[in-house]
Simulated assay, not measured.
Amino acid sequence: MGCRGRLHPMDGTMPLDDLRLFAMVAKHLSFVEAARRLGVPTSTLSRRVASLEDTLGARLLQRTSRRVGLTEEGERLLERAEPLLDALASVLDRTVDREEEPAGRLRVTAPVLTGSQRIAPALFAFAAKHPRISVELTLTNARVSLVEEGYDLAFRIGPIQDAELVARRIWSVPFGLAASPRFVLEVLQGRTRLDRDTLASVPAVLSRAGGTWPLRRKDGSLDELRPHERHTVNDPRVAIAAAVEGLGVVCAPLEAFEPQGDKLVRLTVVGRTVEPRELFAVYPSRRLLPRRVRLALDWVRERG
């Protein structure tokens, strides 16, 4: 079964569907996981991959009772085939039924603040343009499992560290620091420009327990400041409300400060700027992205 050099089918043909199934197994190094994601029986998947190996005259996967691994031939085939499969899927998706009106339910999850202010308006404008689309939008700051919960798409603040997900940058969200006028007067002694140590020592309202505030130094390096956590709430809007009451400094999107008017005072840090957050669209697999989801994603990105 082993071979060296070029991989080639014995009869000049290679079943594309079998190649796609192999790529999914190779990506996850698991027949069980690949079968679950593809919605086919594990036995069928195993049989189709074995058929591909017979066609190519090469063993692509090493199978044991505990694990699945790629052979040298399998690694080479995956490296060459995966980009081609992605490109082919994209071409077919844009060619076949390209005039069809997108339809179906669009299940999306997004952060509470950015989701309500920017993503929701874009998604519902998309739904208004395509009446056969129905939107189910869940706003949460929790990192839900897209596969287990059945979501088509998620918007998340980076960095994205889940290798199982495809991440596509959407836009940058400017962040800043603020506190109430009373807090500035009584705790900061009227100062709105603080050194790093002072900022780290005064009470803060965090959106995540144990969280840090990323600051960018003038030389471009990143400084992760750990604030003095006084209060914690997982909704940035409520964190801002706590800051308005004088309970501490808050770090949040600049657009969230605007409705507060003079109830909040912007703060700056000597030698540093508050790092913006990158918003990403994430989904389980580029090849499995339905057309309605791809169109919605492009729509949100263009109008964000």
Rank of each mutant, 00 (worst) to 15 (best):
F126W: 08
R66Q: 11
Q62Y: 04
L85F: 01
R191D: 07
L29H: 06
Y283W: 14
R301T: 15
D18G: 10
P15Q: 10
D17W: 07
R4H: 09
E245K: 15
S221D: 11
P131D: 10
V91G: 01
I240V: 15
D197C: 00
G271V: 10
R291T: 09
I160G: 09
A23L: 10
T114Q: 07
L247W: 07
R94H: 12
H130S: 06
E82M: 01
G176I: 08
R156W: 03
L279R: 07
G271A: 07
L7R: 01
S46R: 15
V244N: 02
A89G: 14
P236F: 02
D162R: 05
S65Q: 11
S207T: 15
T109C: 14
G304H: 13
V68D: 08
G271L: 09
R237E: 14
L61R: 03
L60I: 01
R98F: 12
G115A: 09
V250N: 06
R191Y: 02
L279N: 08
D298K: 12
F126R: 09
S30G: 09
W171T: 15
P121D: 05
V233R: 03
M1Q: 10
Q117H: 13
S201Q: 13
L77K: 01
L56Q: 08
K27V: 00
A178N: 07
V205K: 05
R156Y: 00
E258V: 15
L267M: 07
G12H: 06
F175G: 03
R292V: 14
F31W: 04
E53G: 03
A239K: 00
A128N: 05
V250Q: 06
A103T: 09
E73P: 01
K263F: 03
G57L: 08
I170F: 05
S30R: 06
E148N: 05
D17G: 04
